[in-house]
Design a protein around this nucleic acid. Structure first.
Lengths: 183, 183
DNA sequence: TGATACATGTAAGGGGTTACATGATTTC
DNA sequence: GAAATCATGTAACCCCTTACATGTATCA
């Protein structure tokens, strides 16, 4: 799947692994993330498959940059993936919910501390979505005409994050209330 | 993390790997899942760590059952994990959102088909939560007094699923409308 | 007659994390 | 003087998925 994230990002600009990591961290991190080491490995594999090419830009005081470019074949692979319908739901893994499932063993105070901390973290993320992320996308929409349509879709994924964070915060408030009443 | 899922489930009953798989599929699958092969491997590792013990129950017309039991040390490990506060948000990976991020490349019709299919899948899951899953938990709450407190927490994780599915469906409706209007 | 449930496991390979290695430049 | 930024990569390890291997009993 990282494969497609990289192909997708490379359609905008030829980039180094380092660039792609930065871009992911500020755009897809909400629903997709990767470590630099894995990005380098995957880029190498994509080149072997002929989906990207790379050339080295020499630098003096920095390590040389290996810049990857999407090939025609890579573009086709990306399009094929986009058309291929997801017929299943994402199988998410959420360590916090797993823990909560077994929390009958835990004392009330620790429990409330953990729920409130999660609430804070989600609230912070939601605020970030509503300010920074929103502004970044708005900026592209207004100032980079050739990415206007892309920005619409980025906005949809952002809106998903916003609605899910709102729901999560409401749930945590409800859970805190339940615990306070019933334990 | 699967480690803790298994320790947590074993607190209720000594079980085989097969049993644990069944149990996970009907209780935690919403936020944690695993393949049988991985469960067998992890149980073996837990036994090596001294967190569970196993004994074999011979059967005639079926393969023998290897029944795992939580040890005192295992119980302590589980409690330690429960008390250990999650100071970060879950790093979720959602292939559908990743794809949507790049969907400016896709034609409107395919796009709408994919969004509507996702909507159906999420609606089905939500219905399941509201009927089957809810009933199962309610049943334990009313008929198994020693698990009444546990059932409260199971209910909280179910409620999280319900709220998130509702939010997701609302988001998909909104997205479909946006696409219809703006593309 | 074929699928499903029961029941356990191994092997190969993919994907991901953490740690290690290097090293100049810029910023605090 | 220390930390962050830029920049690439390897190695070890862990977790997970898919496929393979085995075999009876029951249900449709």
């Amino acid at each position: 799947m990282l494969k497609y994230a990289l192909l997708g990002l490379l359609q905008y600009n030829p980039s180094t692994g380092y660039d792609l990591k930065q871009f992911m961290d500020t755009s897809t991190s909400n629903f997709w993330h990767a470590k630099l080491s894995q990005i380098y490995i995957t880029l190498k594999a994509l080149e072997k498959e002929g989906l990207v090419t790379s050339d080295v830009q020499e630098q003096t005081s920095r390590p040389d940059r290996r810049v990857y470019t999407l090939t025609e074949q890579g573009t086709q692979e990306l399009d094929k993936w986009l058309r291929d319908t997801n017929v299943e739901l994402p199988q998410l893994k959420d360590p916090f919910l797993l823990k909560l499932f077994f929390c009958a063993r835990l004392d009330k105070e620790s429990l409330l501390v953990q729920l409130k901390l999660q609430r804070d973290l989600h609230q912070k993320l939601l605020n970030e979505y509503r300010t920074d992320t929103k502004a970044t996308i708005q900026n592209v929409r207004e100032n980079v005409p050739q990415l206007k349509k892309d920005a619409l879709f980025w906005g949809l994924t952002l809106r998903s994050g916003e609605l899910i964070e709102e729901a999560t915060i409401r749930w945590l408030d409800e859970a805190i209330e339940t615990i306070n009443k019933e334990i």
